[in-house]
Design a protein around this nucleic acid. Structure first.
Lengths: 223, 223
DNA sequence: GTCAACCAAATTGTCAGACAATCTTTCAAT
DNA sequence: ATTGAAAGATTGTCTGACAATTTGGTTGAC
């Protein structure tokens, strides 16, 4: 009998779990941009000790998900529009490249997974679940980046998208943006499925630029 | 009288100083790739406490300059050639874009600084100082990346170059590579000075590809 | 009433020490 | 030689402490 079979390869430490929790909290907008994170409060809320928390915070700071100012402590960065633009531009550069490569190298099996992810986003786009829209869209990109043949591009892209997650969820809530996004993603998918690299790159570029425009719009209105 | 005027904006903490020290040590090849870093030893060597050290290590791990395996601890990653290739490819993508942008936006003053950096590398290329070659070359790129109009590209590029610093210094010690590199960099500089974006991108791509080839060569020989 | 200086509370930076969990190595037994 | 177990080393985590710095409010002078 195997009462407690555990195939977990890497044991999860408290600090890792904390990083994941905090990252998710930041994604979800639990913390107001610009607001300070008080160590002692977080310790209690997370049920961990201050050293463990501080280690987790250093990780997040290195990921640029939080800023730490000496003697003032960590806080959620309030990105300026210029910074957001710079991130979107970098994302464009990476994503266009990844989509282009992906169109040439993706396997049939992964292509089916991509189609499935597109369907999932389609369902979410029609719903009112803002979180589902963002996560299903993220799954779609994730498959593309995982099949571009370069794990570094994937890694960097994930980091960039993480930093603008709030803008993405806000802009995705913009009226009509989800459906527009769906059309653009379908275009990307079709180009990849057809193995048309040039069209795929073009579609990817268009998609990011439109996403950036939507983010700008949502930023001007909401704030 | 102002006996102790201090214009330092951000106070340096032990943690920050430790990250910088360790980063530099990793750059310099003080630690063998694949070797483990023992916390208690580093504490003594650096003269700091274990919590402070661990915070610094978490930062470095997030930068991917070290790996931390749960219950085994931190160690210097031994990059495979595939990983190095992936990093060089990502570097190519970013650097070509940055050089292209830079050629269109750089100011006269910064252009002079770039020329000066090129001269510095020229001097280093003829010398036997391997470290000087790497640092002066890094200064050259640094100016380009700082003037590409997108701080995110700069940030990502710095991170990538840091991860392959050992390969760069090794390949830069290859016979003839420094002079070849100088020629390529001069071509980049001339294209930027001429404001010729297309030529600048082409030269930048060529340079990275040659650097990658040199890195591969040095990897096969030396190891 | 406004502004400055100053004091007190809150928060961070850093350290020391401790202990359990886990990994590594050594050594003995089969 | 392979296996197994015990001993040592190392990491993961917590508690507690204290100095340095920031923050906020109070007091006092003008």
């Amino acid at each position: 009998m195997l009462p407690d079979l555990n195939l977990r390869v890497l044991p999860r430490t408290v600090q890792q779990a904390t990083v994941d929790k905090l990252r998710l909290a930041i994604f979800s907008g639990v913390f107001e941009p610009g607001s300070r994170l008080v160590e002692s409060q977080l310790c209690v809320q997370l049920g961990i000790s201050r050293p463990s928390l501080r280690e987790a915070l250093r990780s997040l700071a290195a990921e640029r998900l939080i800023d730490i100012v000496p003697n003032k402590g960590p806080f959620i960065p309030a990105l300026s529009w210029e910074q957001v633009t710079a991130i979107y531009e970098a994302r464009e550069l990476l994503e266009v490249e990844a989509v282009g490569r992906c169109s040439q190298t993706i396997s049939q099996q992964e292509l089916q997974a991509l189609e499935k992810a597109l369907s999932a986003f389609e369902a979410a786009a029609s719903s009112n679940d803002a979180l589902a829209r963002v996560t299903t869209a993220a799954d779609f990109y994730s498959i593309i980046l995982a099949n571009c043949g370069n794990p570094i591009l994937e890694e960097i892209h994930r980091g960039l998208v993480a930093r603008i997650s709030l803008f993405r969820s806000r802009s995705m809530s913009l009226k009509g943006r989800a459906l527009s996004s769906l059309a653009e993603m379908r275009e990307i998918y079709n180009s990849i499925a057809a193995g048309d690299e040039k069209a795929a790159r073009k579609a990817a570029r268009k998609h990011v630029l439109k996403a950036m425009a939507a983010a700008k719009k949502s930023m001007e209105c909401g704030n």
